[in-house]
């Protein structure tokens, strides 16, 4: 699509300090979730569940890539990368990220996210809902490693778990 209207750039986040001198950068989680689940509803009704999930994954990946470029660019050490991510994700209220296992050589990681922005506190739905997070983590990992990643949520608050668990696996090079 040559003449796109909504191509993402970090500029679109805007000057929050200027724009919200009284309310500041914070808002209630409900508002975020209201928007996200409203999107899900509308998109699903238009494009179906699978396509909606795919769109959310893709959007998450775009966000993850932009996030990596904004906050983590230039980091080459895994520990420093994880530490930086933990601090920023916590500071921004996205979640408490932890690493269960990491095999950099094999490109195999297991990451958990507690108090996740997307799902913590949701009713049990018997299915995982953090597909946006999957894409987000994939974008981060690809930014750090330069390799394509497939990220899958295996435990989610919505399936009764208290912590979201993601497996991230680098894809075989083509």
């Amino acid at each position: 699509m040559p003449d796109r209207k909504y191509r993402f750039s970090w500029d679109l986040i805007g000057d929050i300090e200027l724009g919200r001198p009284n309310l500041g950068p914070l808002m209630r989680i409900e508002v975020y979730r209201l928007m996200q689940f409203a999107f899900r509803d509308v998109l699903e009704s238009h494009y179906g569940t699978a396509q909606t999930d795919a769109l959310f994954y893709e959007a998450g990946k775009l966000a993850g890539t932009a996030f990596y470029n904004r906050f983590c660019s230039g980091i080459t050490d895994l520990n420093e990368f994880v530490r930086t991510l933990q601090e920023i994700l916590r500071e921004l209220g996205i979640g408490i990220m932890r690493v269960e296992s990491a095999d950099e050589e094999k490109g195999s990681f297991v990451i958990t996210m507690s108090e996740d922005l997307d799902c913590s506190g949701l009713p049990e739905l018997d299915y995982e809902v953090c597909v946006y997070d999957e894409g987000f983590i994939a974008g981060l990992m690809e930014g750090f490693t330069g390799r394509k990643f497939k990220v899958k949520e295996v435990d989610c608050w919505c399936t009764g778990d208290r912590t979201c668990r993601f497996t991230a696996q680098a894809e075989e090079k083509a």
């Binding site: 932890r98 269960e100 958990t112 208290r162 912590t163």
Partner: peptide, 17 residues
Amino acid sequence: KGYTAGILKTLQANLKH
């Protein structure tokens, strides 16, 4: 699935971390 298993999984996740 469910709360109790979730709590245990959280414990497992914590121990793994």
